[in-house]
Amino acid sequence: MAAVAETRMTVVLSSHVVSDLTDTCDWLVVLNRGHVQISGEVDELLAAHRMLTGPAELADGIAARIPVISDNRSGRQAVLLARTGTGTPSHDPRWRASCVSLEELVLAYLRHPDATALPRPALTTT
């Protein structure tokens, strides 16, 4: 790997073990059901996603404003993994935003194949 770093060579590493990728990769591509689901620089992807924890009764309002990748509700609390851009989506003090790990990000996308961080291609008919 030292030679790779010195020459700025590109290496493609494929793994099902996300922990192997954490300190190794600077670009992530997640393939799910044969399609690219998410792709981008790891630091940018992590910065653009937040784990939001707050009142379950307000979760639908958050989901209406920003893309929610995963939504877990138990009783009165909701935990949302959301693509927030680089900011925090809610100034409501009842919501807490925390950083997302690479493993949380990858697993959330894999569990929700319809979620994507890529624009969907336009379908054309002939």
Rank of each mutant, 00 (worst) to 15 (best):
E103P: 04
G75A: 04
I69F: 02
L105N: 05
D43V: 13
T116M: 08
A115R: 07
A78T: 02
P93F: 08
T24C: 13
T116Q: 05
P93T: 13
R94G: 00
T53I: 11
A78S: 07
L105M: 12
A3L: 14
L46A: 09
V30A: 07
S90R: 04
H112N: 15
E103K: 08
L28A: 05
T125H: 13
R33W: 06
L118W: 10
T53C: 08
V100E: 04
N32I: 00
H112F: 02
L52S: 02
L13I: 15
P93M: 08
L118C: 08
R111A: 15
R8M: 12
R50C: 05
V106P: 01
A5Y: 03
Q37D: 06
H91K: 14
T22Q: 15
V17Y: 13
S70H: 04
T84D: 01
P55A: 06
T116G: 06
V106D: 01
A47V: 03
S19K: 14
W27M: 13
S39E: 11
L21S: 06
D20N: 13
V11K: 02
E6M: 10
C25V: 15
T24N: 10
R73T: 00
R96I: 13
V12A: 11
I62S: 02
L21P: 03
T88S: 12
R94P: 03
S19W: 03
V17D: 12
P119K: 04
R73Q: 00
L123P: 03
I62A: 01
